Simulated scan of single mutants.
Amino acid sequence: MSRIETIAEGVTLYLGDCREILPTLGKVDAVVTDPPYGIGFAAQPTTGQRKAGQGREKWDDSVVDGLPSLLDRGNIQVVWGGNYYGLTPTRGWLSWFKPDAPPSMAHFELAWTNQDRNARQISCSIAATNAERVGHPTQKPLAVMKWTLEQFPNCQTILDPFMGSGTTGVAAVKMGRQFIGIEIEPKYFDIACKRISEALKQPDMFIEPPTPAKQEALEL
């Protein structure tokens, strides 16, 4: 059953299918997301993930149909893994270089944007983010998502229709941005709610956090 969790004023999370929820939402400054790539990575947990209890999951076995129509809520659009989709040509790519990536893994990842601007790159260690991991097989480092949002300083309302464990939301609230997240998998939705709630209690210094509000659960 779908739920809405209002974590704070300007921070709302939806449990459900984004294809059903997005038509009910208005425009936002930016859609920043990391959808399934269709490479089946979640079905092949690493040794470390298996030891941590991660099982095989099939949601990453195919790309998302009709992704462009799911992005049009945002004036600015950023899609990590966008190179796996037939999106319009752009020169505004973002890149995450992984200096410690093993030979069996990609040494960098790309994010498509709808912006006509110079490409940008961040170098961020995989191992340095191990302490952040919460059980999601394709969890992005918080530093990478904060850097992503820093590329668009005028975007105050961020929407992630494939929220996963909520890293985009954590980055957004720590930077004083408003956030709307959608996740279809209940266990990851619950993780995202917890992570974003905790992030609101520990905002970055000198940044005004969204105003806290009473948490509520509603039926859609």
Rank of each mutant, 00 (worst) to 15 (best):
L200D: 01
R177T: 06
A30M: 15
Q202N: 14
Q156F: 05
N130F: 13
A192Y: 06
Y37F: 15
V170N: 04
N118I: 07
A42Q: 04
L15F: 00
K27E: 08
A127S: 15
A199T: 06
I191V: 15
R133N: 06
A131I: 11
K98Q: 02
Q54L: 14
V32F: 03
E5W: 12
A127L: 15
K174M: 14
I180Y: 07
D29N: 04
C193K: 12
A192C: 07
R91E: 13
F108M: 13
D100W: 12
I207C: 03
D61R: 13
G81A: 03
M145A: 02
C124T: 12
D100R: 12
G74S: 01
D190L: 12
I184E: 07
I76N: 03
A30R: 07
R177H: 05
D100F: 09
L25M: 10
A101N: 09
T211L: 15
L70N: 05
G40D: 03
I122T: 11
T46E: 09
I191D: 12
K214S: 14
A199E: 05
A192I: 06
E216Y: 09
V79T: 09
R177Y: 05
P209W: 07
E9R: 13
A217E: 10
Y84N: 04
T90A: 02
V134L: 11
L110R: 13
K98W: 02
N114I: 02
Q54M: 13
M205I: 12
P203W: 01
W96M: 03
E219D: 12
R117C: 11
M175G: 04
A172I: 00
E208P: 02
K27D: 07
K27L: 06
P99T: 08
F97V: 14
P103D: 09
P89R: 06
P36H: 00
N114M: 01
N118V: 09
K58P: 08
T129I: 07
T88W: 08
S165C: 15
E150G: 08
G135Q: 03
I180D: 03
G66T: 05
R50D: 09
Q49E: 14
C124G: 08
E57H: 10
G176W: 00
R133I: 03
L200S: 01
C18K: 05
L110I: 04
F152Y: 15
P153L: 00
L142W: 03
I158F: 10
T47W: 11
C193A: 12
P102V: 02
T47P: 13
L71S: 01
G66Y: 03
E5Q: 12
T211H: 14
K27M: 06
P68E: 01
N114V: 01
G38R: 02
E216W: 08
H107L: 06
T113M: 00
P99N: 08
V134E: 13
P153R: 01
I191A: 15
L218I: 13
L220T: 09
E20Y: 04
A127T: 15
T167N: 07
I122R: 10
Q44E: 10
D116W: 08
K214Q: 14
G53I: 10
D72L: 07
D17C: 02
L15G: 00
N75C: 07
L149K: 02
L71T: 00
D29I: 00
R50E: 14
M105R: 15
G38M: 03
V63W: 11
T129P: 07
T138Y: 04
